[in-house]
């Protein structure tokens, strides 16, 4: 009862985010949408854990959060540098 509205809202958010991930048009739009999907999945997971009475499993949501950023950075780094093994160009101070 407490959780019903927020679960419905988060599921709707997931669906809308997926729509943007399908539509694109650029890779960045998709990566942005999937990043948002990761955040919302994390929230949904936390809520579901409270719903099933296991609030102590919130660690799982933490794993999602960490992987979400790793995935985003991996895709972007690959897109920019073309190879995950190489270092990005990061001179001291700069990013221009």
């Amino acid at each position: 009862m407490i959780y019903a509205p927020v679960i419905v809202a988060l599921l709707a958010t997931l669906a809308l985010g997926l729509a943007r991930a399908f539509l694109g048009p650029t890779l960045f739009d998709r990566a942005l949408a999937v990043n948002a999907i990761g955040t919302v999945a994390m929230l949904l997971l936390a809520v579901l854990e409270f719903l099933t009475g296991r609030p102590e499993y919130t660690d799982l949501a933490l794993v999602y959060g960490l992987l979400n950023i790793v995935g985003t950075i991996a895709v972007l780094k690959f897109f920019r540098v073309g190879d995950l093994g190489k270092e990005g160009t990061l001179e001291e101070g700069d990013t221009r």
Partner: peptide
């Protein structure tokens, strides 16, 4: 709080589209 937070998530996703 949960519901309002959920509504803001939906608003953000609508904006995304």
């Amino acid at each position: 709080l949960l519901t309002v937070g959920g509504v803001f998530c939906v608003i953000g996703a609508v904006g995304l589209v």
